[in-house]
């Protein structure tokens, strides 16, 4: 489930806001790659409106287009509270593409070790970029990067473990 809806509800819980302010607040706190598109902001708000999780607190008409100020409803507060309390399901990655690649390489007599090496280099490259970004970022940025870094590191541990057991795996794959 996307975290955009609950994030909007939580931000609106701090105070009622216009769509534009909401987007800005979201970008400031959570945007990791690129800022939110306005289309996404208004699509999310209209879904929350339809579900009764937010309401229009005020409509301002001025020289430009009319601006709506949104507020979270009681149902919205309950919704965000439930979302916060619900654990995310840990992704098990049981049949990863990489595993498939390694087994296919072994089955077809291609060098599986090279696949692991290439992947290791790619992962490390990504980790370097995140490490550099961390150095320039604030604490929020650092924590977001750390989360990604620890996940990449877990993949790398798997790559190393698999590399160390390729001969064994190769035997098993051929015997099947």
């Amino acid at each position: 489930m996307s975290s955009l809806g609950p994030a909007f509800l939580g931000l609106l819980e701090t105070r009622p806001q216009h769509g534009y302010d909401l987007k800005r607040a979201y970008d400031e706190h959570f945007a990791t790659k690129s800022p939110l598109a306005y289309g996404q902001v208004y699509a999310t708000l209209s879904r929350l409106l339809k579900n009764g999780l937010v309401e229009v607190a005020a409509t301002e008409t001025g020289s430009g287009p009319e601006r709506k100020r949104y507020a979270v409803t009681d149902a919205g507060v309950t919704d965000v509270e439930q979302w916060l309390g619900r654990p995310e399901s840990p992704e098990p990655y049981l049949q990863s593409t990489l595993y498939t690649k390694v087994v296919l390489a072994l089955l077809t007599g291609r060098p599986a070790e090279e696949i692991l090496d290439v992947q290791r280099a790619e992962h490390l490259q990504q980790m370097r970029a995140l490490t550099r970004r961390k150095a320039d970022g604030d604490l929020g940025d650092q924590l977001i990067c750390d989360h990604a870094l620890f996940h990449l590191e877990a993949d790398l541990r798997w790559l190393d473990l698999t590399a160390a057991r390729l001969d064994e795996l190769s035997g098993e794959v051929r015997d099947r």
Binding site: D117, R120, A121, H123, L124, M127, R128, L130, T131, L149, F150, L152, E153, L156, R157
Partner: peptide, 12 residues
């Protein structure tokens, strides 16, 4: 790996 990420490149 998180230590190696401070380098410019790695040699295995």
């Amino acid at each position: 790996p998180r230590v190696a990420a401070y380098s410019d490149r790695e040699v295995v």
